[in-house]
Write a protein that binds this DNA or RNA. Structure first.
Length: 581
RNA sequence: GCCGACCUAGCUCAAUGGCAGAGCAACGGUAUCGUAAACCGUAGGUUCUGGGUUCAAGUCCCAGGGUCGGCUCCA
């Protein structure tokens, strides 16, 4: 038996074992479904009025280990719909499943291990008692989950477990989880002093410290540099708008509850912007454009605000105030491809710099569900075909996201993976023929006719918050020199060396470097320790030796030391910053 | 929003319903030291907020806020 298949069967059998143990301890609990997942399995139960918390897990786990030795084989039987439902008089969930299986004209089968029988399509180990290592699984957590994943349904209690073939693999997995915890961007953000949240300000509204603000600007400057080279211009817009703008763009209806709304004292309705495109259309619409002036490319790094549900907020990855590095290109139909490819260029350059591998996803409409999308199917199909041919020309592999398009057009989404294996959509290129229509955006072409323009939406980071959350976990907070809010620590050995340390510091600062002198009256060992913990790219100790020679000794955070004079040092560091390595 | 857990000093965490504490950080002093933690001292608290039970609440109950693990959602 292939390893993968055996692991699958192990997990599946363990899910049954979990249900058996739960029923042993909580006879009134109603088991529902228990599939295998990456790294383990889960099982959803309706515990009725009993509250199950994580404290119960060791007890359940113990019961699983107690039952396991008696599971030497299983019995299988097939029942008809009526008899099958008789087995579950008290359990509406299983009855529902039985009906579904019957509707699909599939066999209704039951599998019995020991005294525990469960509705199941099969796929178990023949002899769990012999084949399962009782030390190779662990119940991890308890969570709520809607029956069938539908929020209109009752919320069940889900028990998650990790399971492998050997104890060693389980321990390796648990260690990976520990590692991921250390890299959690919320923890690193605090340690690196980049951002904070305040209960007074509110959930999902990060406040940026001086260091965090510096990092944000450095990232944005990088994007801006790449855009500027490609003919973009900066624009700025207010963060509010009258309702009218969004009624015209279609956002008022589509955004619904996610929009922060404001009523003025005169009774007018305003909204805080959840996106920037409609504002930007009004900058474009300020005059009549000649085809010779196209494209117009507007870049704007600015915050948008979305009233996300509190339970969905998560560190920087899901917030209510979101900084988009947004840009909109207004161009002629025939220019769209070239402009899209320019954006793709920027995306590639940007992410390569940080060592990210990107996956490409083409997010398209859902032709069976067109009420979520503006325009007709044929317009969408043309737009999707355009994108497909561009992506293929580019030679990129891509997946399809059916129904995941923006309501105004398809998107090429770029996806980065974080240390926890979660995938985050970061950059996006979107093509929009709908908003130019709504706002009547055109240029005058060679034949002196009005020509409808198309609009490209392009975010490189997507949002600075989300990018930083992914990048913090990707880098574990080890920032390259150019992005480090502090670049060099200078550690004077004793107070006699403070003045010289400050002189050196000021020379480096004058050269544009971000330097700090640690002139606390503490032993050198303590300063070194603090430095080593801090993730600072470089530090140097300054004492009598340095004061009497023109050599400085600089050490990087990997412990590699070099000696050189100040001029060469500045040159070396500047080079490293410029190359963004 | 929903299910469950949690919230104590700037940070990490203690404290059977019975005097709110430690380490680190901060501040003051002594020491001025060459590669991972000098020594002594001082200060620091609406125990998330509001209400309730109790002779007595950080601890128990209710409501709200926030955080965490998930679910649902994410134009």
């Amino acid at each position: 038996m292939a390893n993968k298949e055996k692991l699958e069967k192990t997990r599946h059998s363990l899910a049954h074992l979990l249900a058996a143990a739960v029923l042993e301890l909580y006879p009134k609990a109603l088991p529902t479904i228990g599939p295998t997942i990456e790294n383990g399995f889960y099982y959803d139960f309706d515990f009725g009025h009993i509250k199950i918390s994580e404290e119960a897990l060791p007890k359940i786990e113990k019961m699983m280990r107690k039952i396991l030795p008696s599971w030497h084989s299983y019995e299988e039987r097939e029942l008809n719909r009526i008899d099958a439902k008789k087995e579950y008089r008290e359990n509406p969930y299983k009855k529902e499943l039985i009906d579904e299986i019957a509707e699909k004209k599939e066999k209704i089968t039951f599998y019995k291990f020991g005294k525990f029988e469960d509705l199941c399509r099969g796929g178990h180990l023949k002899n769990p008692a012999e084949e399962i290592d009782p030390e190779a699984f662990r119940l991890l957590s308890v969570a709520g989950a809607y029956w069938k994943g539908d929020e209109k349904n009752k919320m069940l209690t889900r028990i998650y477990a990790a399971a492998f073939e050997s104890k060693k693999e389980l321990e390796a997995h648990l260690l990976t989880l520990e590692e991921a915890k250390k890299r959690d961007h919320r923890k690193l953000g605090k340690e690196l002093d980049l951002f904070v949240f305040s209960e007074l300000v509110g959930a999902g509204l990060p406040l940026w410290t001086p260091k965090g603000t510096l990092v944000r600007h450095l990232l944005d400057d990088f994007v801006w540099q790449l855009r500027k080279e490609r003919g973009y211009e900066r624009v700025e817009i207010p963060h509010l708008t009258k309702k009218n703008l969004y009624e015209k763009s279609g956002h008022w209806a589509k955004f619904g509850d996610d929009l922060f709304r404001i009523k003025t004292r005169e009774g007018h309705e305003f909204a805080i912007k959840p996106m920037n495109c409609p504002h930007h259309t009004q900058i474009f619409a300020r005059k009549t454009w000649s085809y010779k002036e196209m494209p117009q490319r507007y870049a704007d790094t600015t915050m948008v605000y979305r009233d996300e549900q509190t339970g969905e907020l998560h560190g920087l990855s899901r917030v209510r105030s979101i900084t988009q590095d947004d840009a909109h290109v207004f161009c002629r139909e025939k220019q769209a491809k070239e402009e899209a490819m320019k954006i793709w260029d920027i995306v590639e350059t940007f992410y390569k710099t940080f060592g990210f591998e990107l996956k490409v996803k083409l997010s398209i409409h859902d032709k069976d569900n067109m009420d979520r999308f503006m325009g007709d199917v044929s317009g969408w199909e043309k737009a999707v075909e355009d994108f497909k041919s561009w992506i293929e020309e580019k030679g990129a592999e891509y997946g399809l996201g059916v129904g995941e398009a923006a309501f105004y057009g398809p998107k090429i989404d770029f996806i980065a993976k974080d240390s926890l294996g979660r995938e985050w959509q970061v950059a996006t290129i979107q093509i929009d023929r709908s908003m130019p229509e709504s706002f009547d955006l055109y240029c005058i072409n060679e034949k002196n006719e009005k020509e409808r323009v198309v609009m490209l939406h392009a975010a490189i980071m997507g949002s600075i918050e989300r990018f930083l959350s992914v990048y913090l976990e990707h880098s574990a907070g080890i920032f390259p020199l150019w992005l480090s809010p502090e670049q060099i620590f200078i550690l004077p050995v004793a107070k006699d060396h403070n003045a010289f340390a400050w002189q050196t510091c000021n020379k480096l600062r004058k050269a544009g470097l971000r330097v700090r002198v640690d002139d606390n009256s503490e032993p050198l060992g303590k300063k070194i320790r603090r430095t080593k913990i801090s993730k600072i790219p470089y530090y140097m100790v300054i004492g009598g030796n340095e004061m009497t020679s023109d050599k400085l000794k600089i050490e990087d955070r990997n412990g590699k030391a070099e000696e050189m004079d100040l001029k060469n040092l500045i040159e070396k560091l500047k080079k490293e910053i410029e190359s963004r390595s």
